[in-house]
């Protein structure tokens, strides 16, 4: 990736995670003139709210008797608009290195897309960790990952003139079946049933290709892979009819949705407790000064994994963050209802 040479992005705070806690961090920090860049591995804001339950009702947001995960996300995005956060989607923070001191923290973060950030404070609002592709329980599949087995298409060229097996019935499986068909030597789509949750127009386009003999469709599941040195030679299909056959292929793409894994956060040198980051309940700061953990990813006595707890946590954490970002400024506690200063920042005065 050529962005490696790109100059570092300077910011007051990097917020890791664009779920409700990350989004409301932008608000609370913004009221204190702390500028934010927000990084999330998903392609959009909302975290679990948009990924797991966009249409499901939430009943315990104070002041909102009922709203869906998507509505909450949309409202939060509207609420933080005045602070013009910069979002970096489809990116995962890989490394977090401390460059400063306990009194004057400074951090360097790098993402898997090669971007570098310099920040005075870091808010980890990573929820249950990062959403990563589910890996099917096929023995030794990991030894083919990145060379023959892919969970996403980064470069179409990796599939040119290859025999490709795609597993799944959702949008990812169908989209890549359709997109790779003109490029690949052959495509075999494998799914456990003859119904598909993917968009109807993709399903009919796929069925037309099957009818025209341009791709194969098999009912069943892949139970094993064959090959050596990371180069796949075949996948073993167990058909729903019980028949086992070998599909000769050089590429395999399993699409089983996403799961939450703690991911690189575990390697940042922070104290961890059962995959959660312990914090104090005054500032929600981690074992490392200047790094805060808010929302579902933190732990403290009495912690409840509720969105409303996350909101409370970010408000308090922002107060301490202000001391790091503006060490010489005295922080005056103000209300948005009455402070002309805050109203100016919100663009409503």
């Amino acid at each position: 990736m050529n962005q490696l040479k790109e100059a570092a992005i300077e910011t007051d705070v990097v917020i890791v995670g664009a779920g409700p806690a990350g989004l409301f961090s932008v608000f609370e920090l913004g009221l204190l003139d702390i500028k934010a860049h927000v990084i999330d591995i998903l392609p959009r804001a909302g975290g679990q709210c948009s990924e797991l339950y966009p249409e499901k009702p939430i009943y315990d947001i104070p002041g909102l008797p009922v709203c869906t995960g998507q509505e909450l996300t949309d409202n939060l995005l509207k609420q933080i608009e005045p602070f013009h956060p910069t979002f970096h989607f489809n990116e995962m923070v890989e490394t977090l290195v401390s460059l400063g001191t306990a009194e004057k923290p400074e951090f360097r973060l790098s993402t898997d897309a090669g971007k570098i950030f310099h920040a005075k404070v870091v808010f980890i609002a990573a929820g249950g960790g990062s959403f990563q592709p589910k890996k099917p329980p096929i023995p030794k599949i990991e030894s083919y990952e990145g060379t023959s087995v892919f969970y996403a298409v980064r470069r179409m060229e990796d599939f040119r003139d290859k025999n490709v097996v795609i597993v799944g019935g959702g949008d990812s499986a169908l989209d890549w079946t359709l997109n790779l068909q003109p490029v690949a030597k052959s495509i075999t789509l494998v799914h456990r049933r003859d119904q598909f949750r993917a968009a109807p127009h993709s399903v009919s386009a796929m069925q037309e290709l099957v009818a025209a003999g341009k791709i194969d469709f098999k009912l069943g599941q892949i139970t094993a892979v064959e090959g050596e040195d990371g180069e796949l030679a075949g996948a073993i299909l167990k058909g729903n009819d019980g028949v086992v056959e070998k599909l000769a292929c050089e590429r395999l793409m399993p699409f089983f949705g996403l799961t939450m894994k703690l991911g690189p956060v575990a390697d940042w040198g922070l104290q961890l407790n059962e995959n959660l980051i312990p914090v104090d309940t005054e500032k929600f700061e981690t074992s490392h000064p200047g790094i805060f953990a808010v929302g579902d990813i933190n732990s403290y006595p009495g912690k409840l994994k509720l969105i409303l707890s996350g909101f409370h946590e970010v408000a308090l954490a922002a107060q301490k963050a202000h001391r790091y970002v503006y060490p010489d400024k005295k922080l005056l506690f103000q209300y948005t209802t009455s402070s002309t200063n805050l109203q100016k920042k919100l663009g409503v005065s």
Binding site: K134, P136, P137, G170, R192, R193, Q195, G257
Partner: peptide, 11 residues
């Protein structure tokens, strides 16, 4: 639920 079972293993 059937749709979501597509994301489970060894169904």
């Amino acid at each position: 639920e059937e749709d979501m079972l597509d994301f489970a293993f060894d169904v």
